[in-house]
Amino acid sequence: MVEAFVLIQTEVGRAEVVAKQLAGLPGVLSSEYVTGPYDVVVRAGAESLAELRATVVPSVQQVSGITRTLTCPIAEAAQP
């Protein structure tokens, strides 16, 4: 499985609503409303990088209220 963090900026006042909408999408493993330069951080996963790019990321980007995204594929997950 390939995973990525998607850093999301939203319209003013929409971050909490957007985070809740994103949480229900296929491929979204977690969706958090945060503070800082980004408003929402999503952890997404798919069977391949191609699938992540073709299906998961576009579905995230289509949610109303999102103004900008930055997708950061996880190179290697740290093991506890």
Rank of each mutant, 00 (worst) to 15 (best):
G65D: 04
A50C: 02
A23R: 08
S30L: 09
L7W: 01
Y33S: 15
Q62I: 04
S31N: 14
T10N: 01
I74P: 00
R43C: 09
P37Y: 11
T55Q: 14
G45W: 09
L29N: 10
S64Y: 08
G45E: 11
E51L: 12
A77E: 12
A75E: 06
I74M: 03
V57C: 02
S30R: 13
Q61E: 15
S64F: 07
A46C: 11
L70S: 07
E51G: 07
S31F: 03
V18T: 00
V6A: 06
Q62R: 15
L70G: 01
I74Y: 01
A77Y: 00
L7F: 03
P73W: 09
G45A: 14
L22T: 04
L22K: 05
A44H: 11
A50E: 15
E16G: 12
L25D: 08
E16C: 08
R43A: 09
S64W: 06
T10I: 05
L70I: 05
P37M: 13
L70C: 02
D39Y: 10
L52P: 02
A46G: 09
Q21P: 06
V40I: 07
K20Y: 01
V34A: 14
E16F: 06
G36V: 11
E51K: 14
T35L: 14
P73S: 08
A77C: 02
T35I: 12
T67N: 05
D39R: 04
R68Y: 10
V28L: 07
T10Q: 00
D39T: 12
Q61K: 13
G13D: 05
Q9E: 15
G24R: 10
R14W: 08
R53Y: 06
T69G: 04
E76H: 03
T10R: 01
G36P: 03
L25C: 11
S30F: 10
R53Q: 11
V18P: 01
E47F: 10
L22F: 06
A23P: 00
S30M: 11
T10P: 02
V28K: 07
I66T: 03
V42L: 15
Y38N: 12
T71F: 07
A75W: 06
Q61F: 06
T35D: 09
V63A: 11
G36Y: 05
V34K: 15
G13K: 01
V28F: 10
V56K: 05
E11R: 08
E32D: 15
A44L: 14
D39V: 13
V56I: 11
R53A: 13
A54W: 06
L70K: 03
L49F: 11
G45I: 10
A15C: 06
I74G: 01
V6N: 02
V18L: 04
P37C: 09
A15M: 02
P73G: 08
R53H: 09
G45D: 09
V34C: 13
V18Y: 00
A44M: 13
V12G: 01
V57D: 02
R43Q: 14
E16R: 14
L52F: 09
R14E: 14
V41E: 14
L25K: 11
S59C: 07
L52V: 05
V34P: 08
